[in-house]
Every structure is written in structure tokens, then in C-alpha cells.
Simulated scan of single mutants.
Amino acid sequence: MKIVVIGGTGLIGSKLVTKLTEHGHEAVAAAPGTGVNTLTGEGLAEVLAGANAVVDVSNSPSFERAAVLEFFETSTRNLLAAEAAAGVGHHVAVSIVGTERMPENGYFAAKIAQEKLIEKSSIPFSLVHATQFFEFAHGIADESTVDGKVHVAPVRFQPIAGDDVAQAVGRTAAGAPLNGRVEVAGPEQFRMDEFFRQALAAWGDPREVVTDPHARYFGSELSEYSLVPVDRAASGQIRYLDWLKATAT
């Protein structure tokens, strides 16, 4: 089947295109660099011709509250309209576990708005909610650094490898629309502060990790279950330290 991957040249998108191709699908990477722009609509009609499914793993170039909301609302409206015109039968979007539990977070609020547009559209859909990617751990640590120390809340944390996310998204895209969501998380659950102590030690990073119940996660204070699935979720296979060793080599 022909599956168009919006954001197909990015972290998850490029992995997804590779996995879909390996499984015999016609996977097409669509991004501004390939002549497809969901904000302007450029190239959408052409790339969606004959597509059975579309997977949206695109991301906003700016995380400023108004900008990220504008990105997801505009790009999703344009994409859904083009899919309807092309007769696409399955729209898949990647979102984040816990979006509905932190609506005060600008990025999470924008993802909620995106999901509402998808749910109200005429296109059969599937939403894949994933936990934080291993690949973003350095960025989370940097964002959490105050005066040279990494301040992290002692809450549950269950990150996942990008390859496992791509595997789950590809399986979803090739299947029947869920008209609902599936959640996917890593195979190990940690206390977030302990995860970053172990991670920084493995990185050889000398920064001290401070356990801080009021530490902010990209502007939001966390509760115990803010970032992890509270119901059953599909589990990835790759453990963090194994992933770290593999990527180091």
C-alpha cells in the first residue's frame, strides 16, 4: 500500500519510511525539502494521489505557544482537506502520552487541538500516543538545568526508543483505522530523577541531578502520572542502556 509520511525526513519519519519500505509498502517521505508544505498546501495534492494512508509525524519549527498552535491547526486542516479530496482512507498522527493531563502546557495544548481536528474530520483515523523518546533525553536534561544543576521531579518516567515508536506507528498505519488511540511506552519505568542520574553518569556528564518535586517540565509542574500511560499500553523492546551502547558504537 502507498503510505505518505508527513515529516518523513525527520527523526521518526525517516525511521518509519525505512521500516515501511522493508515491509513492502510504498513509503513516500513528504516534507518541505521534498516539495511538500502542509502550511501552504504546496505539493499535497500530488503526493497524496493514490495514497492509502497518511502518517503525520511533522513538528513545529517553533515551540512558542501561539506559533506551535498555529502550526498544528493550519497544517492539520490543510492535510485533512487534501486527504478528503484524494480519497485517503486512513489518517495516522503521532502524539504524546499525557497530553490531556497537562493542557496548560503550550505544546501539549497544540497537540490536543490537532487531535480534535482529526477526530472531527471525515477521515478514518488512528492516534499513536508515545512517551518521551530516548533521543530527547539530552534536551530534557538541558531544559531542566538551573545554575548548572539538573532539577528533575521524582515522578514516573517511561521513555522509548525512536525505533520502537516507528515500529508501532508503521504497524498502526498498515492496519485498519482505530478511530481512537493506542499508547506506546518503553519497556522500563523509572523514577524520573533516578533515570537522569543514571543517564548523566552513563554520558559522563558531571552535572548534579537535584530531586525537586516542583521542577518544571518545559514549563509544567508534573504529577506522579503526568508522563506515563495509566491504562494498558504497547511496550517497546529496546532498553535505554542497550540503546545508549548501540548508538555510541
Rank of each mutant, 00 (worst) to 15 (best):
G148E: 04
I3P: 00
E46H: 11
M102Q: 15
E143K: 02
T40L: 07
E104K: 04
D242E: 13
A53W: 01
G87R: 10
E119T: 11
F195M: 04
A109S: 13
S14H: 10
R207I: 09
K149C: 02
I160Q: 06
A166I: 03
R181G: 11
V169W: 01
Y225E: 07
E208I: 04
S60V: 03
G204Q: 10
N59W: 13
T76R: 05
T74D: 01
H151F: 00
A168D: 07
V230L: 10
Q114L: 07
T21S: 12
A234H: 06
V92G: 14
G148W: 04
F63R: 15
L241E: 14
T211K: 03
I112G: 05
I3N: 02
I238N: 08
V92C: 03
A113W: 11
L20Q: 06
I140Q: 11
F196G: 06
E221A: 02
P206K: 01
N78L: 09
A85P: 05
V47C: 12
S14A: 13
P229R: 08
A113D: 09
P213Q: 01
G10P: 14
N59M: 06
R181D: 06
S58P: 15
A84M: 11
F190D: 13
L44D: 12
L80M: 07
A202W: 07
E221I: 04
L200M: 08
E26V: 15
P206Q: 05
E143N: 04
H214M: 13
F218A: 06
I118H: 05
V57A: 10
G33Y: 02
A67Q: 15
L117H: 09
A109H: 14
E183R: 11
L222G: 05
F190Y: 10
H91N: 06
G41P: 08
E70R: 02
L200I: 07
G98Y: 02
S75D: 07
A109Q: 13
R239Q: 13
V54C: 09
G204W: 04
L20D: 02
G186C: 12
H151Q: 06
D205A: 03
E221H: 00
G43T: 10
K15E: 15
V150A: 12
A153M: 04
R197Q: 04
A29E: 03
G219L: 01
L80Q: 09
I12D: 12
F72H: 02
D147M: 07
V54W: 07
D142I: 01
F63T: 14
L79N: 01
E119N: 12
A45C: 05
E64H: 00
L48Q: 01
S58C: 10
V228E: 09
Y225C: 08
A30Y: 03
I96R: 00
Q132M: 12
R239S: 09
K245H: 12
D231L: 14
R197A: 01
D142P: 00
F63N: 14
E183D: 15
T249C: 12
L227Q: 07
A109T: 08
T18W: 00
L244M: 03
V97W: 07
V128P: 12
A113S: 14
